[in-house]
Simulated assay, not measured.
Amino acid sequence: MADRQDLEFTYSLIDRIFRLSLGESADFSGAKYDGDFSLTLEQAQRRKHDYVAEQIGIEPGRRILDLGCGWGPLLSDIRRRGAEGVGVTLSSAQAAACRRHGLDVHLEDARQVDRDRFGGFDAVASLGAFEHFCSPEEAAAGRQEQIYGDLFANVAGLLPDRGRFYLQTMVFGRNMIDPERVSIDAPRDSDEWYLALMGRQFPGSWLPFGHEQIVRSAAPHFRLVSAVSGRLDYIETIKQWRSRFAEPSLRKTLMKARLVPRWLTSSDFRLAFTSGVSANSVCFERELLDHFRLVFERI
């Protein structure tokens, strides 16, 4: 799994810029346009939260766990609906931001949440965290499905019979290349280079090979209720994010200035955050990546 240091690099290092661009509860997972790209980013994110709430039953009196809660957008929605939300993240900046807004968030490995310490839940959600649960090294060692299987077993132990688990994640798409070809030294516009750039942006993280691998791993404990691709929605979401990040702001300029020493000393930082391209967008457009909204029910 991507460790705390990896996630601090991706999410905590530029935490303030994220929140200045996307709001205090920065929603950094794919929105739900359903093909209607006239929606604003905020409307599409609300549509996503409505969908999650409908699928897993977020309503008063219910207790919901958010695995990899980010800056707390889903937890805020859970609270708005009158339910109790508990979140976990490995980013110290995200945890601090959530707590400032009164959200119940713990600095914790999502794979280690257990009933003894956290109690039971009526439903579980995870939006965009599954991508970090397996590292490239673990995948190369053939441990990917074991890791996913252990996660599903753990989540099942938190839920009642027929309790639901909403999972939203990127996966490798139908045009994914042989991972051994991925290289930052490949030609700049090649599939190999874009995938390597993503690896710099999200160190320690490896994706499932299609949603089918996830469904297989869940099978001993969960049945699949629905699986919907959100690839086109994610392309639009990234477009809107990039527009927000590009909006001029004195406070953002000052924050970026503080990162100059890191930019000068870290080639990984320069590649990850100042390459001038959106590796995610290109990979989705080329179908090297896909994006799925999966609803599971405990057997």
Rank of each mutant, 00 (worst) to 15 (best):
F121P: 04
E24Q: 14
P179R: 11
H106V: 04
L65Y: 02
E285H: 01
L13R: 07
V113D: 06
S229A: 15
A153V: 02
D36A: 05
F9N: 13
S190R: 08
S126R: 03
A31F: 05
F202Q: 15
L20N: 11
V86N: 00
F222R: 08
Y148R: 03
V52D: 06
E287V: 03
G120E: 14
F37C: 01
A96F: 01
I56R: 11
A26G: 12
G102E: 15
R286L: 00
S21V: 08
K239E: 14
R80T: 02
G199I: 09
Q94I: 06
A125N: 12
G210R: 15
S190K: 10
T274V: 02
N280G: 09
S38N: 03
D104K: 11
D27A: 13
R47I: 06
D50T: 07
I147C: 03
P220N: 10
D50R: 14
M170C: 07
S25G: 15
V282Q: 03
Q144A: 14
R111N: 05
L13N: 02
G68R: 08
R117N: 15
V282A: 06
Q146V: 06
G210I: 09
Q5G: 14
L39A: 02
F121Y: 09
W206S: 10
Q146E: 14
D290R: 03
A125W: 01
V215Y: 11
P261A: 04
L197E: 07
S76D: 08
N175K: 05
G199Y: 11
R298M: 08
D66T: 01
F37Q: 01
G61H: 01
R164E: 05
D290S: 10
C98I: 09
Y51A: 14
V228R: 14
T265I: 03
L41D: 03
L74A: 05
K239T: 06
F28G: 04
N280L: 11
E145A: 07
A186R: 01
L65W: 04
L22R: 09
R223M: 02
E297N: 00
E236S: 01
R111Y: 04
L20F: 05
G57Y: 07
G68E: 14
V295I: 15
D66K: 00
R115D: 11
